[in-house]
Design a protein around this nucleic acid. Structure first.
Lengths: 257, 257
DNA sequence: GAGTGGTCTAGACCACTCG
DNA sequence: GAGTGGTCTAGACCACTCG
């Protein structure tokens, strides 16, 4: 047992705060210990079986408390290894008024970023893609799906769809999609983004290496050329624990009625 | 048993898709049934005990599948009453470039909105409030916390802090905070918003009437007068299943480096 | 009072990690 | 091989809803 356990958990029984179901009492207790810094990021918690006997509850109850804290990003569990206080993720800010690409955005911050391509090819379009991109009948769609990684931490999943008229060969896209589009004069100058919060689905959670059910930002972007033509239709999923989007609001025409 | 059950669940055993843990198989199976419209919003599912015997798993396993679907907003459970397919929430869009107040925003849409005050008073400021609002030593802070409700559905929690120099008596705030500020010439003209996704905490979840752990948008707003003085510091929590924030992005100076 | 979800237990077996 | 988290069971009792 580590020193941290000795200090925090002692070797004997644990007294929970009263009120409500046991698993919530235990959850609050652990949350407080982390909040007060009694256990630091990276520190191991006692094993679930250990905790169960000390707190004098069943292991199922311990797991219910612990798993909620995992979902909330307070703890991390590693199968076969143990349960730990989650490292403090450094948050990344992104502007909601400047139209930039992910690659350029991170480069400006001096952050090392790489992408893993999940998909890069030409497909028959979905009806949604046909509509949004304004594709002609029979025209196909170029898809570029990437996992964005900074250091060794996955940050976001980006799934872009473009008309093959602006991107005939998605295979040429390297780090920056916008840099590629610029070469043919098809870099967008304007975009509409729709942002919402949703719990991470199983598959996306695996890619982002965080538990399913964790909160994520889902962003839908439609980008336009100066001519008004739609160039890009992208759905992205950003980790909720690392991303802040920043917007500047002003009093405008429609705002004052 | 209702007709829907007869059609979907039959009266006998259920065959799950294969692969992975039982609770995920069951989760996928229910999710598919809802996705395909085999069970409609409002329809009841068989009871947990019923499902357990039909699918031939334990009730704990059924609950694990069902509770994830509840968290994801697919199902709702009512204690003592049953488990139902969640009603389709109509989504609300809000601009991220126009500085408007919630009350005015909803009025423009013709939506009936009311507020329940959670708090409205004058307090000694937190150190964060002192810093952000630029309070003088000894100056106190006006707090206005509201639960925003449309129809009978809670939409958001808004917790605003203002200098008492612009809002000496928070008790006078009725439907619109900005309308009140306008009377004294203290309506903000500009604001910075910081948006992130996070899982709902216990208390906020109760107020918004959705399960703890559901994804929500957390928004921090700092609003300024034309003079540059900070008027308002507000933290809001919006339901992830009903809110879309919409931003328009443009190529700008800093974007092109 | 019958039925429902909410909590909790004691125990089992498996897959994984680590020295 | 010892220890850890991941899944699963059969059963219990409680609080709540509804006719």
């Amino acid at each position: 047992m580590s020193d941290a356990h000795q200090a925090l958990f002692g070797s004997g029984a644990v007294l929970l705060p009263q009120g409500g179901p046991l698993y919530l009492q235990l959850k609050r207790w652990i949350e407080d210990a982390v909040g007060k810094g009694l256990i630091q990021p990276g520190d191991a918690l006692p094993s679930e079986r250990d905790l169960a006997t000390r707190v004098d509850v069943s292991r199922v109850t311990v797991r219910k408390a612990v798993q909620q804290l995992v979902r909330d990003g307070i703890l991390v569990q590693r199968h076969g290894s143990g349960t730990f206080v989650a490292p403090q993720p450094h948050r990344v800010e992104q502007s909601l008024s400047q139209l930039t690409s992910f690659a350029e955005d991170m480069a400006r911050r001096g952050m090392a970023v790489r992408s893993v391509f999940l998909d890069r090819g030409v497909y028959p379009p979905s009806s949604e893609e046909t509509m949004v991109l304004g594709l002609s009948p029979g025209e196909r769609v170029a898809r570029v799906a990437r996992l964005r990684i900074s250091g060794d931490m996955p940050l976001a999943i980006e799934r872009a769809a473009l008309s093959t008229s602006v991107l005939p060969d998605p295979g040429v896209v390297e780090t920056s999609l916008y840099a590629q589009l610029e070469k043919t004069g098809n870099r967008p100058v304007r975009a509409i983004q729709r942002i919402r919060a949703a719990n991470l689905a199983e598959g996306d959670a695996e890619l982002l290496e965080i538990p399913a059910g964790a909160a994520a930002l889902h962003i839908e972007r439609i980008a336009y050329l100066a001519s008004g033509k739609v160039v890009e239709f992208t759905r992205s999923v950003y980790r909720g624990d690392t991303y802040d989007f920043v917007a500047e609001l002003r009093v405008g025409e429609s705002a004052r009625k």
